[in-house]
Design a binder for these strands. Sequence first.
DNA 1: GTCTATATAGTGATAGAC
DNA 2: GTCTATCACTATATAGAC
Lengths: 208, 208
Amino acid sequence: MNNYENEPMELRIREVAQQLFFRQGYAATSTTQIAKEVGCTQALVHYYYRTKENLFRQIFLEQVEAALNVVGRSLASEASFEDFLRSAISLYFDALQQNPRLPFFVLEELVSNPERRKYLRKNFVQKPSYAMIYMQFDARVKAEQQAGRLAKVDSFDIMMSIASLTVFTFISLPMYQDLLAQTDEQVKQFIAHRKAEVTRLVLQGLRP
Amino acid sequence: MNNYENEPMELRIREVAQQLFFRQGYAATSTTQIAKEVGCTQALVHYYYRTKENLFRQIFLEQVEAALNVVGRSLASEASFEDFLRSAISLYFDALQQNPRLPFFVLEELVSNPERRKYLRKNFVQKPSYAMIYMQFDARVKAEQQAGRLAKVDSFDIMMSIASLTVFTFISLPMYQDLLAQTDEQVKQFIAHRKAEVTRLVLQGLRP
DNA sequence: GTCTATATAGTGATAGAC
DNA sequence: GTCTATCACTATATAGAC
């Protein structure tokens, strides 16, 4: 717990805005609501960030960057490919458990707003450093297939499948929690359970 | 192509509204915008549906029902469990290809609005007919495991994994299309490619 | 840096004419 | 059934006092 009350206003506004954007999305969140939760006037929100769109973009970029860093970190492993997959999936689950609303937040805005995709493309996809992440993974996959230790599957498919299985777990969390009326403890168990099963499924599914 | 211009207004409004809700979500869509795209006044939208929320709910329920019917249909198969899985995954991909925005539309509203989850719970989860769908599947899984033809995995996990892999394909479609600048033909190929790989991964991953 | 006040525009919804 | 007109609100954003 940060000692919230003593933080500078600029930061408090960003933190509250992030929470609200995460929960409700961009369109359903107003600067008035942000101000009310912070305990300041709506004018102050605009004093620091000028526009709502601008405030959103700072948060959005920061979060995408954080997510990509997790992916980047997962590729640094020197272990065997199987152990590398294990620890990557484990890392994704742990990172998302810390920040369960992140994937939906990013997806929502990317899916429902073409401008956001353009923005992301300019800021990340075109940057060579991020293209490198994929190249690195692809090389490793090909080497493993050459050695006959991995099924002949496109590296892009491996990434897609792992992303699907991890991300969807957290996207569906509110439904699991709410529709099936589960407690926090049950949710924690559910995540751990899925982590184990996703790992098992991926490893067995990628055997040659 | 329906001869759109000749349809009754009530229906035209619903179709346009659906398109817009699918693309932008509830909060980002106004009844004014709906009216403009239909080519009528905003008052008429409210004449037929009274409130925006009400218009939304009709569309939402209809779509959830359609989705659940696809799932229900997939369970009717008499074939071997492996063939049943194959045809179920195939059916999901085909249904979603007809309606690629459906999963995101449903998820978005369920994730970002607790009221919608309450509403869904009342209308579906509590209905015995929908609980039956799961029971049916669970029985079949257990029988297959008894016979030693299927890995010892919870039936709930099997559903979650298949849902993750199919749904995420379509959620990520706008990004695939836009971020990687793909043509319609390439998108079609991508879907077919994922359908094959998802089928392969699930079948191999569920072998005992 | 924080406030009050306000300009401007858009929202959902309704009343009433035709 | 469709329109015009309008209400009461809320939104984002800015100007100006302190």
